[in-house]
Design a protein around this nucleic acid. Structure first.
Lengths: 124, 124
DNA sequence: TATAGTGTAATAGTAAAATATAACACTAGG
DNA sequence: CCTAGTGTTATATTTTACTATTACACTATA
C-alpha cells in the first residue's frame, strides 16, 4: 500500500480500514486479518497496525477478542454514521479549502462538474 | 495560526502563503513579511518558516533578494497556474476519496449541493 | 563607516512516529 | 497439557519535524 509521507501511517491505516468496512469488504461481525498479517500486507510494523486498531477500538468500530481476533462491530447504525461522517468531512475540506482561495459556492459546483466531465472524456 | 497536527507545519505554512498570493493579499512584486516577523506572527521557528519559503523559491513562486526580502513573482501566469493546480488538487482529493467509499459521480455532486444548501440554512 | 533590517545556514536538543525485537496473555484444538 | 494462532505490551533505536540559538552575508541609510 502506498502511503502519503505527509500523514502518519497509523492514521492512513485507520482510514483504510474505515473504507474496507464502509464498502462492505469487511461486513459487520467479520473478523479482521490478524495484526501480524495486516503488518505484512501493508508492509509496516505490528505496533503501527496496533496503534491504528487501538483507535478503531476506542471508537467502537471494531471489537477485540483476546486470543481470537478483531471483529467489525455488529452495530450497522454505527457504520452508517461513520460513512456519513467521512463523506461530510470530505465535503467540508473541499468547501473550506476552496473558499480560502476565494472560490464561490456556485464556482465550486461548476468546477466539480467540469472535473467529473473531463475525467469521463479522458477515459473514453 | 492554527495548525493541523497531522500535517507538517512547514507544509501548512507553504499552503498559507499560496493562498495569500492567490487571493491577492500578496500581489505580484509584493514583498513578503520578513522571515523573523512571519515566525512571530505564526508562532513558529524561523527555520520552519525558511523551510516553507525554500520550497516556494524552488517553485519560482517567490524570489529572494538577499538583504532585501522575499518577493512574490511578477509572473502572473505562474500564479494563475498555481491557482488552477490547487483547485484541481482539491477536486481530485474529494473525487478519489469519495470513490473509495463507493460514492458515484452523481452522488458526489448531489452530496455537495446538499452540503452547500445546508450551510446556507444554518447561517440564516 | 556604522547600524539596523533583511535572508541564510549551522549546531544542538526535543518530541513524535515508526521500526525491530521480544515477551506476555488468551483461545482453540489435537 | 501442549501448541499454534491470536491480541497486547515493552524496550531500544532510527528518522523526521521542530525548536532554540548563534552566526554569517548582504542592503540601505543615517
Amino acid at each position: 500500500m502506498k502511503f502519503d509521507d505527509k500523514i502518519p501511517i497509523y492514521y492512513q491505516i485507520k482510514n483504510y480500514i474505515y473504507r474496507e468496512i464502509i464498502v462492505g469488504k469487511l461486513a459487520p461481525g467479520d473478523k479482521l486479518p490478524a495484526v501480524r498479517q495486516l503488518a505484512v500486507d501493508l508492509t509496516v510494523n505490528v505496533n503501527t497496525v496496533q496503534r491504528a486498531l487501538s483507535e478503531l477500538i476506542s471508537e467502537k468500530i471494531i471489537e477485540p477478542q483476546r486470543g481470537k481476533g478483531n471483529f467489525v462491530t455488529e452495530d450497522k447504525d454505527t457504520i452508517e454514521k461513520l460513512k456519513k461522517m467521512l463523506i461530510t468531512e470530505q465535503l467540508q475540506d473541499l468547501y473550506e479549502n476552496l473558499h480560502k482561495l476565494n472560490v464561490s459556492d456556485e464556482e465550486i459546483v461548476n468546477y466539480l462538474e467540469n472535473y467529473i466531465n473531463e475525467r469521463k472524456q479522458v477515459q473514453s
